[in-house]
Design a protein around this nucleic acid. Structure first.
Lengths: 137, 137
DNA sequence: ATATAATATAACCAATCTGGTTATTTATAA
DNA sequence: TTATAAATAACCAGATTGGTTATATTATAT
């Protein structure tokens, strides 16, 4: 399952993308605007920084700003950065197919189903999400 | 994540489908043939019985037999019988969208991604899996 | 009848994962 | 030098998973 932390990460990036380019906002503001526990925001942003998508500056007037063009960050990337590799079954985590049968038909099915899901997630960017929200604010 | 029990359930049905129609095999045989812990097989078959796909008869000469045409059992059905409703995110388990924004763009994305995955799983039947195995036995 | 082989049902359990909380440290502006 | 904010790390309770164990029930073979 895609974790709530990954979902929060997407929401945090969307929040950042919904402010004018280069703007800094504090993690506290993000937490308040999006109803995410404050300390979790900080924790998640650490990963987003690691990916290079965001960066923070400390002290008063400090905050977080978006470093990357939100149109090039897609949801799969964010999910995998936070949760690690996606796998809809345990089977897909093992490098090699189990050897129960010479060829396990199931593995191919899992793989296809998962790829189908990931393709949808790859095609949605943070920018699109941010724009999608504007429509009904 | 699709649990190992659901995967086992599919494998058990495939094993049953790979024997001549009407044949009974014991849960112990299934366990041995497919390397599944014996007691788990019994546990899982209870659910398969409940769905009407299989039934057991007790005593010596007893065993399990497939009641349904394996070409009408698809993987989504089996997974949902064992694991309950599928949800790739917590969000999709709540009946109503959260009200953070008037319209949450994310929910639609999750839903589309999940549906895409489920469609693949719906299109694969137990019969196809059983036939797929024959190719390289 | 009775022992045996099989399904059926239920309770239990250790390990892992999740969604947090708490505490501490570091940097910076005023 | 003090307040504010990010950064980092450790901890934790509850849920889920993938089993195991124990016991009851039923049907057959002898």
């Amino acid at each position: 399952m895609i974790t709530k932390k990954a979902e929060y990460a997407i929401i945090i990036l969307t929040e950042l993308a919904s402010h004018p380019e280069g703007t800094m906002i504090t993690s506290k503001e993000i937490a308040r605007n999006r109803s995410i526990p404050g300390n979790l925001v900080v924790q998640i942003i650490a990963s987003l920084n690691e990916a290079g998508w965001t960066s923070g500056s400390r002290g008063p007037t400090g905050g977080i700003k978006l470093n990357s063009d939100p149109s090039v960050i897609n949801l799969r990337q964010v999910i995998e950065k936070i949760d690690g590799p996606v796998g809809i079954t345990r089977c897909l985590f093992s490098e090699t197919p189990c050897q129960e049968k010479t060829h396990c038909s199931l593995r191919g099915v899992w793989s296809k189903a998962q790829q189908s899901m990931l393709t949808v997630l790859e095609r949605v960017t943070i920018k699109e999400l941010a724009e999608g929200e504007l429509k009904d604010d």
